[in-house]
Amino acid sequence: MSFINYSSREINCKIVYYGPGLCGKTTNLQYIYNKTNPETKGKLISLSTETDRTLFFDFLPLSLGEIRGFKTRFHLYTVPGQVFYDASRKLILKGVDGVVFVADSQVERMEANMESYENLKTNLAEQGYDLAKVPSVVQYNKRDLPNAVAVEELRGVLNTRGVPEYQAVAPTGVGVFDTLKAVAKLVLTELKKGG
């Protein structure tokens, strides 16, 4: 749920990166963090386990610049991907303005992708959202791996709605900013509609 402050002329939006465990959600945020100017970003916060698995969430605030005199800020969050952290995942979806679904392209992760995608729909519905109406994009990550499934196949199960989709290799940044820009644009377009 965006927050518009007429007094300080700011607008804040929340974007959540969702997807199965180890699909690269945190890597997306780390790449964005490493490649943005210090003045446009805040601290990257990672609440993770000792083995660097996300425990609760990662958080990165980003300023995009001004639109009509309003400072536009995006708060990027990731959810913990592992199945048993479902209670935490639900909490992070609260007040979401846009969703990035990060899929793991490896053939052996197809089932995990599908499970996570269904879980996203269920958890959004619990908060009163309909995935079809929430601004969202799909990222097919790990395209560089030899066991990556064809994009058509991934699309067939994870993007039947035809939302913007991007192929990515998150550690090297391929597709990372394209994904972010696409979702940010969708969120702003939704705000324009008065969402």
């Binding site: 518009i4 995009l64 610049g65 005199g69 309003f70 820009k181 377009t189 324009k192």
Partner: peptide
């Protein structure tokens, strides 16, 4: 209530951000 400040932005405004 006040109209959203974003009601009048154009696609160009959004594109310019990026």
């Amino acid at each position: 209530g006040m109209a959203s400040p974003f009601a009048e932005i154009s696609d160009d405004d959004i594109d310019n951000l990026f």
